[in-house]
Computed example of a mutant assay.
Amino acid sequence: MHDTLAQSFTGILVQVGAATQVLADDIEATQAHLEMIDELARIGLSEARRSVSALRPQLLEEGNLHSALHRLVTQMRAAADTSVIYEIKGTAYSLPAEVENNLLRIGQEALTNAIKYADAAEIRVELVYDNTQFILRVKDDGRGFGVATIPSVGGFGLLGMSERAEHLGAQLSIQSQPGQGTEIVVIVNRE
C-alpha cells in the first residue's frame, strides 16, 4: 500500500511542478501534465480504497458481525452518557467477510455520529436476521437534521456509508428531521 500510494503521490507532485513551469509558456504541455495528474490521482485513490476495503477491522478478527457490534456498543456505552441499546432479531447467520466488514463500518459510523452530534437520550442498534435479507438499523431520539440540506462535500461519514452500501448492492436509507431523531437502515439481500 505504501509503495503504490507513495509512487502515485510523488508522481502527482512531479507533474504539478512540471505543469507550473510550463503553464505560461505552453498550454498544450500544461494540459498534458494536468491529464497525467488526474490519472495519477485516480490510480492513487483507487488503490487507497482497495487497500482500505481489504483491511479487516480488529473487532471482526475475534468473531462475527453481531459480536463485533456488541463489543462496539459496549465500548460506546462506557464512553458516552447516552443509553445505547443493542438488539438482535432472528437467528444469527454468517455473512461474507466483505459484507460484515462494510456493515460494521457503516454501523460504527452511524453510532459514532449519533453519539457525537445527536445529543440523544437513547440510541438503538438493531440487527435483523431474516430468511431473505439482513437489516442493520441505528436509530436515535436526538436532534435530527434535514437530510435534504446535507452538503454533497464535507459529509464524509454519510458519504462513506452510502459508498459502502452501494459497493455491497445494499439499500441505505437515512431518515431524519430536525428535532425528530435519525434512523439509518441498511438492507442487504441474503442471496
Rank of each mutant, 00 (worst) to 15 (best):
A165D: 07
D141S: 07
I106S: 13
G157H: 15
L172Y: 08
R143D: 01
F145L: 15
L104G: 03
R137C: 07
D141Y: 08
L95E: 04
E126W: 11
G169M: 09
Q171F: 02
P178R: 00
G107Q: 08
R124F: 03
E100Y: 03
G179I: 02
S94G: 10
G146L: 11
L95Q: 06
R143V: 13
F156D: 03
E122Q: 14
V125I: 13
S152F: 14
T112Q: 11
F145G: 03
L158W: 06
L103E: 01
A110Q: 09
E98P: 03
V125E: 06
E98Q: 10
Q175N: 05
Y117G: 04
I150G: 01
G155R: 10
A170H: 00
Y129F: 15
M161V: 13
P178H: 00
K139A: 14
E126V: 15
P151E: 14
Q133T: 06
Y129V: 07
Q108P: 04
I135K: 11
K139N: 11
K139T: 11
A97K: 06
I174C: 00
T149H: 09
V128E: 10
Y117K: 08
R143C: 11
I123E: 09
A148P: 01
E109Y: 09
A97W: 02
S176R: 01
P178D: 00
S176P: 06
Q133Y: 07
L168K: 12
G142N: 10
A165Q: 06
A170S: 06
L127P: 02
I115S: 05
E100D: 08
N102T: 04
N113D: 15
A118L: 02
L172E: 03
P96Q: 09
A121Y: 00
N102S: 15
G155L: 11
E122P: 05
N131V: 03
T149R: 14
A148W: 02
G142F: 09
N131R: 03
V138P: 03
E166C: 08
R164S: 05
A118W: 00
E98K: 06
M161N: 01
M161E: 06
Q171N: 07
F145M: 14
N131G: 03
K116E: 12
I135C: 07
G160E: 00
L136C: 14
A118G: 05
T112E: 13
L172W: 12
F156Q: 11
I115A: 07
A148R: 14
A121L: 14
A121V: 05
E163M: 13
